[in-house]
Design a protein around this nucleic acid. Structure first.
Lengths: 246, 246
DNA sequence: TAGTGGTCTAGACCACTAC
DNA sequence: TAGTGGTCTAGACCACTAA
């Protein structure tokens, strides 16, 4: 069952991406939208808040909402899951496990996964391909409580996210991502088919369930020119932060 | 004048960063918060929505809000302005203009700045330093209507953002950022004091006013190890997107 | 000055969680 | 089953924009 505010948001989203509401144009007033959709103004504002957070529209007190961007934004699922993201874009995802070993969490890993130092973890290296070409090398550390479920997956499992949801009901709900650039090491170069020292986009991330329980932390390295990360931000919604490196 | 919902959000934010509400703990119920602050539940929900968007807390229907992260997030101003970001972190920002020339917008620039192809633009190269060390090379293209104001700034102007606000009332309200990694070119290497071919974090961004009018577009390259970008996202708020490169 | 978005209230009902 | 968050309503007043 979809909620009224989600329906209204979807109608407006479609009007923007379809070009009925071109870049820079003004939306109908909140009162008008409430009348045409037969809801109260509060519900309309809930729908507009979603588009505001996506960076599609901007607002100023006293003036109507305006269209800031016409590019659709992606769902969290598409972002979190390489396979689902690839398929959503019409590409063919692939991948295989290079290595999977159990070990003891070091200090940093334990802190990120909220475990005791030395607790058992599962380390997995995965190579991801897009339309057959290697684009991403993942070095993932899973918390011990999920290790068995991960080990049970086939080596060429396309979507780990989807598999863990289906088999164990584990939902990836929140993520924190740190982006910077590094030079390709020996293993990076071999697997991604680039020269040693080539620039790679590194994304270090930690994912937790809806309850806030950390599931995995990962060091992902993208081949240059393969993938671009996009963030929209504003005075009204500010997801992106910049921090000095250690 | 600060709003009631902003005050409540600030109280909760402080309780989280101070450790009174530790990682994983539950917040008071919305009804309790409404009673203790003497406001309606709607106002409390407005405050919680802000923390939700910042990734500090998570929520599930039927369960209380929980603390997901204790790291403070930054304001848009700190993100947008290199100087203000540096000072907020206790660092000393610096910088100088390497070059500033007027020219005609090429096709890509015109599209990003919503100008007619061939319209006049101002191109500025700026080197930014943090505590004396070069960390960032900016190649910025300003729309013609703001060019004169930018040219009037001193070459060692610390905060262009602040200067344009003070002198012309131009507010940088929205931004779109694309992040990837590139190899340092000859000019990059010379100014940032790295070897040619070294990995650099590249951020291509376009900034607009609150009215949605593009002000500038820029290609920023960060020295490796100097700065890290952080994004928090979730099923409830998803600012980050990943797109295949062209 | 008329219209618009921002804020806030005081209710109501439902879906879901935790016990 | 009691409590909680998610949704929605129908008002009200204020700050701001645009003509």
């Amino acid at each position: 069952m979809t909620r009224r505010h989600q329906q209204i948001a979807e109608v407006l989203r479609r009007a923007i991406t379809d070009g009925h509401l071109p870049l820079g144009s003004a939306l109908p007033s909140e009162t008008e939208l409430a009348a045409t959709h037969g809801v109260s103004r509060g519900t309309v504002r809930q729908a507009l808040a979603a588009l505001l957070a996506e960076g599609l529209i901007g607002s100023r007190q006293g003036a109507r909402h305006i269209v800031l961007s016409t590019a659709p934004s992606q769902s969290f699922t598409a972002l979190r899951s390489f396979a689902q993201w690839a398929r959503a874009g019409g590409h063919s995802p692939g991948g295989r496990v290079l290595e999977a070993v159990r070990g003891a969490a070091d200090g940093g890993e334990a802190a990120l996964l909220q475990l005791a130092p030395g607790a058992e973890v599962l380390r997995v290296w995965r190579l991801r391909t897009l339309d057959g070409a290697p684009v991403l090398l993942e070095r993932t550390v899973y918390a011990g409580w999920i290790a068995e479920a991960v080990e049970a997956l086939p080596a060429d499992c396309e979507s780990v996210t989807q598999a863990l949801l289906d088999s164990h009901g584990v939902v990836f709900a929140h993520g924190e991502h740190h982006l910077d650039a590094v030079a390709a090491g020996t293993a990076d170069a071999r697997e991604l088919r680039v020269r040693r020292g080539s620039p790679l986009l590194r994304v270090r991330r930690t994912t937790t369930t809806a309850e806030g329980r950390p599931v995995e932390t990962s060091d992902d390295r993208y081949r240059p020119g393969a993938v671009v990360f996009t963030v929209r931000n504003s005075t009204q919604a500010n997801p992106l932060a910049r921090t000095p490196a250690d």
